[in-house]
């Protein structure tokens, strides 16, 4: 059996008295796009923060490509090749789109203070980052706005930039937190096409949190549904959308809405 790309095993996390994530387990095989869905407050973003190292689980283990993530902070997790993009658009003030991609490709080589003294490594990384930024600009269709300040981009392009930045460091897996939230139908289609291209052309697995069920159903090979912090359904999209527990929790009993 192959080593799962991501193995979440019995993970729980509470905030005060609220159990935000309860004994969640799933293992993701390599080569998949997986949807993580559930109503607001189901624990999706908390689970992302646990996987990405921003939060520590109270219980359970998370493994990425067979490697335990316990004790690793968000920077170290990202350096392993497990990248994330954010729900809200997230950019550095005052920097152009190209500078964002350049930094995104470069900074993993300066992750720890001691790395700043390895000037030979940094010099090579600097050259590579310039090429990578140019290549990603073309890949994501952002070449026309390369020199525009990222904060001045339309919302949809900012979200695309956020997703592409997450890839710039050479990730094998992307945690995408609601990439289509706030986008109009045209922008949503473009985002869906980008995610598919990221998966097919760059071989990056994706774990996708998304409320746009049409996008989830179209993109994903598998869906994990959360309700009240626990897994309530898990399987191929066609099965999950008919699962009674999922229908009750997510759609309020109306199976046809999916």
């Amino acid at each position: 059996m192959t080593v799962p790309r991501l193995d979440v095993d019995g993970v729980s996390r509470s905030f005060g008295g609220i159990r935000a994530v309860r004994a969640v387990s799933f293992a993701l095989e390599p080569g998949r796009i997986t949807g993580l869905i559930g109503p607001n407050g189901a624990g999706k973003t908390t689970l992302f923060n646990l996987i990405a190292g921003t939060l520590k689980p109270d219980e359970g283990r998370i493994r990425f490509e067979g490697r335990a993530l316990a004790g690793l902070g968000p920077g170290a997790v990202a350096r392993l090749g497990l990248a994330r993009s954010f729900q809200a658009t997230s950019v550095f003030p005052g920097l152009s789109v190209r500078e964002h991609l350049h930094r995104a490709a470069l900074l993993r080589h300066a992750g720890r203070p001691a790395d700043l003294l390895r000037w030979r490594v940094l010099a090579a990384a600097r050259r590579a980052a310039g090429e990578r930024a140019a290549e990603l600009l073309d890949f994501a269709g952002l070449a026309g706005v390369a020199e525009t300040e990222a904060a001045a981009l339309p919302y949809g392009l900012q979200k695309i930039l956020g997703v592409v930045m997450a890839l710039a460091g050479g990730a094998h897996m992307l945690l995408a937190d609601e990439p289509a939230a706030g986008l109009n139908p045209t922008e949503t289609l473009r985002m869906g096409a980008l995610l598919r291209a990221i998966h097919r052309k760059r071989g990056v697995d994706i774990l996708l949190i998304e409320h746009d069920l049409r996008m989830v159903m179209a993109l994903c090979d598998r869906i994990v549904a959360l309700g009240d912090g626990a897994v309530i359904a898990d399987g191929p999209p066609a099965l999950v959308r008919r699962d009674p527990a999922f229908v009750a929790a997510y759609l309020g009993g109306d199976a046809d809405a999916a």
Binding site: A52, T54, G73, P74, G75, A76, A78, R79, A83, R84, S85, F86, S90, V91, F92, P93, R103, A104, L107, R108, A110, G111, R112, P113, M165, A166, A168, G169
Partner: peptide, 15 residues
């Protein structure tokens, strides 16, 4: 400017 974004790019903020 944006520490969560910096961390997501592979930088250990606290060190």
């Amino acid at each position: 400017g944006n520490e969560p974004l910096l961390q997501s790019l592979g930088v250990d903020a606290l060190p």
